[in-house]
């Protein structure tokens, strides 16, 4: 049974914008999963639908086997959510916010109190429990939302851009906290537009762009893909078959076009030597554009402006 199974999920907002164009996702129990994508890709929309804040247009979602449409409350009980935007009352204390959330999940006050102490403590907020939430710094507000999301000890924690706008030091300690709770068996799904964040934390990753999942794989696999580049060589004279290229992965697309995958660390001169040895003359070369690459450039640009 998957922790999260999303099938053909579509969302069209009232302004006719197709925010999600039929996405599929599968997150295994115990996974640390990243949903990576630039701003406006549809990450928050996806999260909003999973936790019942956004009405979907079509598709289905199962959380630990509970269908969100037919076993809504059972599904919801499995999820803890840390939203992208601050959404607690400014007129409540930290402790009050966490205890009330426990109440909404049907947790007895005495148990909620123990857990509040545990999680507010771990997140460095216990000393400030009686302060009004509006007096907390941005980073503390975000940690308060994490404590709030854990009060019912959910099987899966979903965080929507948890480290956006959080300083580097705090980001590290938040990562350590998340790694720790993941090791205790809680499935974690986080959205981010920092590749670095996904890379340091996640086992599996899906990349979303303009409402489509364009990659869904292990982190390892993705990184190795990103370290390869495909070059296209146009030949002066057509050839019939491609000779052995000394370990380079090549394909003859048509008699006068060769595509070769080259790892970033390799020296491209070697390849030309091999071509020369086989009497292959190249008249032009370019790199093949790759959607993943483009998306990453996009993400990098996004990072620069944040």
């Amino acid at each position: 049974m998957s922790a999260l199974e999303i099938k053909n999920l579509k969302k069209t907002y009232r302004n006719k914008l197709d925010a999600l164009k039929g996405i599929n996702l599968n997150v295994q129990q115990g996974d640390f999963f990243a949903l990576l994508g630039p701003n406006g890709a549809g990450k928050s929309t996806t999260i909003g639908i999973i936790c019942g804040l956004v009405n979907k247009t079509s598709g289905s979602i199962k959380v630990f086997g509970h269908d969100l449409d037919t076993a809504t409350n059972a599904a919801k009980a499995c999820i803890g959510i840390v939203p992208q935007e601050i959404n607690f009352s400014q007129f409540e204390t930290c402790l009050g916010i966490v205890l009330n959330q426990g109440g909404y999940y049907g947790i007895k006050r005495s148990i909620a109190m123990e857990r509040a102490e545990k999680y507010l403590g771990k997140l460095g907020l216990w000393e400030r429990r009686n302060e009004y939430s509006r007096n907390l710094s941005g980073g503390m507000k975000r940690r308060l939302m994490i404590a709030r999301a854990l009060i019912h000890e959910p099987k899966m924690l979903i965080l929507d851009e948890p480290t956006a706008g959080v300083d580097v030091e705090l980001r590290r300690s938040m990562w350590d906290f998340l790694i720790d709770i993941n090791q205790q068996g809680i499935t974690i799904v986080l959205t981010t537009h920092y590749l670095e964040e996904a890379e340091s934390l996640c086992k599996n990753i899906a990349i979303i762009d303009k409402g489509d999942i364009i990659e869904d794989t292990s982190m390892k696999n993705l990184l190795s893909k990103l370290n390869k580049e495909t070059f296209v060589f146009d030949l002066v004279d057509p050839i019939e078959s491609l000779p052995e290229l000394n370990g380079y992965q090549g394909r003859l697309k048509d008699p006068s076009t060769i595509e070769v995958e080259i790892e970033r660390k390799n020296n491209i001169n070697d390849l030309f030597n091999i071509f020369s040895k086989h009497g292959i003359n190249v008249c032009s070369m370019r790199n093949k554009s790759n959607r993943l690459e483009e998306l990453f450039l996009d993400l990098l640009n996004n990072n620069k402006t944040h």
Partner: peptide, 18 residues
């Protein structure tokens, strides 16, 4: 309306409350 405006109504909407 205050709960809507400050968005903490979401605290209830995400929870398994009928």
């Amino acid at each position: 309306f205050g709960a809507k405006f400050q968005r903490h109504i979401e605290e209830m909407l995400v929870a398994p409350i009928p």
